[in-house]
Design a protein around this nucleic acid. Structure first.
Lengths: 200, 200
DNA sequence: CGATATAGTGAACAACGTGTCCAGTAATAC
DNA sequence: GTATTACTGGACACGTTGTTCACTATATCG
């Protein structure tokens, strides 16, 4: 289990932290957010979870942090390392999964809010980087390096740059909203970048 | 002059709007923001401009809107349509200008804040889209279409997609902060995309 | 058992920013 | 002068944050 709010489970003196309350809080945050389309307040989360506000502030620094942890537990989407798929298809699938997540579910709206929050609050930025962006980034980089190893991808390729260029347009259009996220965005971007990536 | 807050200048009955106060407000907003690195409050702007808070709310819906207009007047950077430059160089130069703006000046920090605000407030989003993103986007698209006309760029190219893919990585790294904005980012991204864009 | 340590409660509190209201004053066109 | 609009400054209610405090609850350890 990927605990964001650290919790040593060594037996210590004193009343132990209530796991029941912890999950109640995280579920409350996620439910409120998915229902309202925005980051709930500490007050609302506490009320819904049937918990004192003080308890919230004890374990999390901000509502955005609570929500992020709550969403991660709800979606708990394992990022796939489908090493059987050809590199290009694996990358496209990954970007495509992101695009559809941002488009179809209300997760897109919430991710926008969380990105806004991460600009304001350092805690949120760190948590999002660690638990949201980096896993996806590393998975993509992994596929690219796999491609280099198998000779499909040009050696010396800047895997970080390529990865960012693949993912960036989706977030870019999500944030600015000047163009809808199309079904074929992933394929289009991959097609655009691939000639520079593939070995000639 | 690019007026964001609309102002009919037809002679109307009644006391005319004070241009002195308007510029004082915009300058105050820009100064406070550049000094503090964040979006100032309506209160702070009013105080610094020596103006009533009521006046602010009369002409602008939020502090972010005031700041945006103030920054646009301060930087008033005209986006260049250097049609003499080769298409690839023109595009690179444009992306490069953005990267350096985000890196060097404190504008990067402020643009982050404004993007966050634009996620929360519709007014800000609309204003940023119209006065910040679209001009740059259209300039890039213009160069691409110029390229198509002169035969340098592959006909049928999705100019919008290419433009977004060129600009997106800079914003992407600015927001997430997982990688520094390098001096050569513009050139790297252009090089990555160009093979798919240029005629064979 | 008692001592100690930690978790959780509920209420209160100050601080801050927002957005609106209102009575009064100022400047312009007709 | 009259109508019309701009600006002032103070007040207000509202919501959210983050902290404090006395109190209760539940665990470990000797």
């Amino acid at each position: 289990m990927n605990n964001v709010s650290s919790n040593t489970d060594t037996a210590r003196p004193g009343r132990p932290r209530s796991e029941r309350r912890r999950t109640a809080i995280l579920e409350a945050a996620a439910e409120l957010a998915l229902a309202g389309g925005s980051i709930p307040t500490m007050d609302a989360i506490a009320a819904r979870a049937g918990v004192s506000r003080t308890t919230l502030y004890k374990w999390w620094p901000s509502a955005a942090t609570v929500l992020l942890e709550g969403l991660l537990e709800h979606f708990h989407e394992s990022i796939e390392f489908d090493d059987d798929l050809p590199v290009r298809e694996a990358l496209t699938a990954q970007v495509d999964a992101l695009v559809h997540l941002l488009r179809d579910t209300s997760a897109g709206m919430l991710l926008r809010q969380l990105m806004a929050a991460s600009i304001t609050e350092r805690d949120v930025a760190a948590a999002m980087l660690e638990h949201w962006l980096e896993p996806r980034r590393l998975a993509a980089i992994h596929h690219l390096e796999r491609g280099i190893a198998t000779g499909v991808v040009r050696p010396g390729t800047d895997t970080g740059l390529v990865t960012d260029t693949l993912f960036a347009p989706a977030y870019y259009r999500l944030i600015w909203g000047h163009t809808e996220l199309g079904d074929d965005l992933a394929e289009q971007v991959c097609a655009l970048v691939w000639p520079s990536v593939a070995t000639p």
